[in-house]
Simulated assay, not measured.
Amino acid sequence: MKNFSGFIIIAFFLFSCGEEIVPKPKPYLTLQYPITSYKKIETNCPYSFEISNLAKVNFKNNCWLSIEYPELKATIYITYRKVEGNLDEILKEIEKLTFEHTIKADAIPDYRPFENSDKKVYGKLYNIEGNVATNIQFRATDSVKNVLSGALYFYAKPNYDSIVPTIKYLEKDMMHLIETLEWK
């Protein structure tokens, strides 16, 4: 019986010497986005800007609109407000809506400012990190007559880790919208 147990121990050492088994690394999703080209959107409203050719625009009769990305299952909702001596009130309201996300947000890092004195466009773009309803919001104004604000929404329950690549892709489009914004 002693020889048999010795044989098993020796067999174990002989057969255990081989290639080390290593678990496969966790795979990550690699998303490929098309290179964006832009087209100018002309409206009867007091503004115009450029949007991605991948997007569809739906106009409302009060100069509000939605920019839909069907393949990305996302929409940017644009709100227009005419300033009638209440610019500070409008800007505070927009900022309040942005910071209402602090309850669910992991962070709201500093905003990204934008200024184009020649076109009289002054804006801010906010990134809101975490599982929130809208991860990017912006506002733009001419400081006198017009305010435009926008918010990005997805048609899915927010899972920030999964949608970060899409957020970054659409952030470029939103920044391009602000950069090409012109007041009429």
Rank of each mutant, 00 (worst) to 15 (best):
F154G: 00
L31N: 08
C63Y: 01
K104Y: 14
E100V: 10
V121Y: 00
A133T: 11
N44P: 04
Y126L: 08
P158W: 08
T166R: 06
E42H: 07
G150F: 03
A11P: 02
F15T: 13
Y69P: 00
F15E: 07
V57D: 05
Y33N: 03
A133F: 10
S16N: 13
Y153Q: 09
I8N: 04
R112N: 12
N116T: 05
L29Y: 07
L29Q: 13
K104W: 14
L148M: 12
P165Y: 04
V164K: 15
V132H: 03
P158A: 11
D142F: 05
N146W: 03
K104E: 15
K60F: 10
I136G: 00
L65Y: 01
F15C: 15
L125R: 04
K172T: 14
S66L: 03
K145E: 13
K104T: 10
D106E: 15
L177P: 00
K145G: 02
A105S: 12
T79A: 05
E115S: 13
L65V: 05
K157A: 14
L177T: 01
N86M: 10
M1D: 10
E182A: 05
Y122C: 06
T75D: 02
Y111M: 11
I51Y: 01
T134G: 14
T79H: 06
S48N: 09
Q137I: 03
P25A: 10
N3D: 12
N146H: 15
L31F: 06
L72E: 12
L177M: 09
P109R: 11
K120Q: 13
Y169I: 02
E19H: 12
E182I: 02
E20F: 05
L65W: 00
T102C: 09
N86Q: 13
G85D: 07
K96M: 10
I41Q: 10
K82N: 13
Y80F: 09
P25M: 07
V147N: 01
L91T: 06
I108H: 08
S143I: 06
L87A: 06
P25E: 15
S117F: 11
I35N: 14
N3F: 11
D118G: 06
P165F: 07
P109W: 11
I178N: 00
I67N: 00
D173G: 04
Y122M: 08
Y33F: 15
S162G: 10
N44C: 02
I90C: 09
S16V: 07
Y160V: 06
I35W: 04
I41S: 05
C63K: 02
F99R: 07
G6W: 07
N131H: 04
E100Y: 11
F13D: 05
K60I: 05
E84C: 02
R112L: 15
K120S: 09
Y80V: 03
K92P: 01
P34E: 12
